[in-house]
Simulated assay, not measured.
Amino acid sequence: MRTGAAADHAGCFHAAMYYGSEAELAEALVPFLLDGVATGEPTLVSAREGVSSVLRAALPADSGVGFLPGEEYYARPAVTIRAYRKLLAEYVAEGFEQVRVVGEVPAEAATWDWWARYEAVINEAYDEFPVWGVCTYDTRSTPSWILDDVARTHPRFAERDGAHRASPSYAPAALLGERRVPAADPLQAGPPVFELRDPNVAFVRQALAAHHGGVLSAAAFGDFQVAVDEVTTNAIEHGLPPVTVRLWRGETRLVVTVTDGGAGPTDPAAGLLPAAKARWAASASGWPTSCATTSPSAPVRTAGAPSGSPPASRPGGRPPRFRLCARRFRRVTPGSTLRIQVNGTCVPLRTQRDDHHPCGGLLPGW
Rank of each mutant, 00 (worst) to 15 (best):
A28R: 13
Y91L: 03
W287E: 00
G95I: 12
R328E: 09
A312W: 14
G162W: 15
V215N: 11
R339A: 08
R321N: 12
D198V: 04
Q352W: 02
A125T: 00
A278M: 12
A75S: 09
V30N: 00
R350P: 05
Y74F: 01
A75L: 09
P155H: 07
E124M: 05
E108S: 08
T153G: 00
G66D: 11
A210D: 10
G40N: 15
D354G: 06
Y18Q: 11
G20T: 12
I122S: 02
E71T: 08
G360V: 07
E22W: 13
R152G: 08
R253K: 13
V204M: 03
E104S: 10
T39G: 11
E237P: 04
V193G: 05
A202F: 07
L44Y: 08
F329T: 06
V245Y: 12
V30R: 02
A227R: 10
N234T: 09
L324I: 05
A189P: 11
G316L: 12
G4F: 07
L87E: 07
C325Q: 02
T266I: 01
R2Y: 02
R205F: 10
P299H: 01
T252E: 15
G20R: 15
T111Y: 09
G365F: 09
Q188G: 07
Q98T: 08
S309D: 15
D198C: 03
A281Y: 15
A202N: 15
V121R: 02
V256A: 07
V256S: 05
L187K: 13
D267N: 09
V37G: 01
S313L: 15
V30E: 00
D161A: 04
S53H: 01
L88P: 03
Y91S: 08
P274H: 09
F329R: 04
L273D: 07
E178R: 01
D354Q: 07
P192G: 04
P319V: 10
S283F: 08
L87T: 01
G103K: 11
P299D: 02
A83M: 05
V231F: 12
L208E: 01
H211D: 08
P242Y: 13
A218E: 13
A218H: 13
E108G: 09
Y137I: 06
E27W: 08
P268A: 00
V256H: 07
D354E: 13
V226T: 10
D149V: 03
E24C: 12
G261I: 02
T111W: 14
Q352R: 14
N200Q: 03
T302C: 14
V181Q: 00
V332D: 11
A83D: 05
